[in-house]
């Protein structure tokens, strides 16, 4: 079984991430980076599928060169191979361009049986890349998967439980498919020292725009119809006004305050 897991490196959820008010981007310098927590569940599920059905797990990430660290973490957990999609031309990608880039990377890997993504990244919080990627790869998709019940390799079928607002839905579809997973699906393992050693020795190929082919205008900033216009921290809430004094007086003041602001009209 050929399993592909897509991951993203994000600022640590424990780090105090600040925003650059002028550029409208996150200040990533000096902030510890981690594997997107939802992607850890995706990696773990990929490894479990391999343990259950045999095969090979390839992790793939689009990001700056340091995203290599996230891929090494996935290798340490037990993934077999890793590929980094990195190129200056990918900078400024929105979810559409990201899904496009990842889809070319995955196509380059050859035939696959399943693609696993975390349901969303904790920095962008869009939950769009998984579904967008399924569309680009022309794969069936099951989102918000909380349990894979069965994969039938002979009949090329997957049955999974997905979390919906009112409960759990059981869905079957044909392979190859893409799933996005929620944290209920498993408990990611702690790597052991031997797999860490293996990971530190692993070579991670880096594929740029030239390696992927595709249309230059569909990558990065040019391929991104959505642009972040502004990003800001909401101003802290100001303390309200406390009206003190005897009740009749205070009520009169309150009515006046609300009336003058056109909130009530007595």
């Amino acid at each position: 079984m050929k399993i592909v897991v897509c991951i993203k490196q994000v600022p640590s959820t424990e780090a105090r991430v600040q925003m650059d008010p002028i550029k409208g981007t996150l200040i990533r310098e000096g902030v510890e980076s981690v594997v997107n927590p939802f992607d850890e569940y995706a990696i773990e599920e990929g490894i479990r599928l391999k343990e259950r059905y045999g095969g090979e797990v390839t992790v793939i990430s689009m990001g700056p060169p340091q995203a290599r660290e996230a891929l090494k973490t996935a290798l340490a957990m037990g993934a077999d191979k890793a590929v980094l999609l990195s190129d200056r031309a990918f900078a400024g990608s929105d979810t559409l361009a990201t899904a496009y880039t990842l889809s070319l990377g995955i196509k380059k890997l050859g035939d696959i049986d399943i693609v696993i993504c975390g349901k969303q990244a904790t920095d962008g919080d869009t939950a769009q890349v998984g579904p967008g990627l399924a569309q680009r790869l022309n794969l069936r998709q099951i989102t918000y998967v909380s349990k894979i019940r069965e994969i039938n390799l002979k009949n090329r079928k997957i049955t999974a439980e997905r979390l919906i607002e009112s409960g759990t839905q059981v869905v079957s579809t044909a392979l190859p498919a893409l799933i996005t997973v929620v944290k209920d699906i498993n408990q990611p393992r702690i790597p052991n020292i031997f797999s860490i050693k293996k990971a530190t020795r692993a070579e991670i190929p880096v594929w740029g725009m030239q390696d992927l082919g595709g249309d230059p205008k569909d990558f990065g900033f040019d391929g991104s119809p959505t642009q972040v216009v502004r990003i800001f921290t909401p101003p802290p809430r100001q303390g309200g006004e406390i009206i003190q004094g005897e009740v009749p007086e205070a009520v009169a003041k309150l009515i006046e305050a609300l009336t003058s602001r056109n909130i009530i009209n007595l």
């Binding site: 660290e69 090494k72 973490t73 340490a76 702690i190 790597p191 052991n192 860490i196 990971a199 530190t200």
Partner: peptide, 10 residues
């Protein structure tokens, strides 16, 4: 080093 960091994290 990378491997020291990975051991420390683990």
């Amino acid at each position: 080093t990378e491997e020291q960091q990975m051991i420390k994290n683990m």
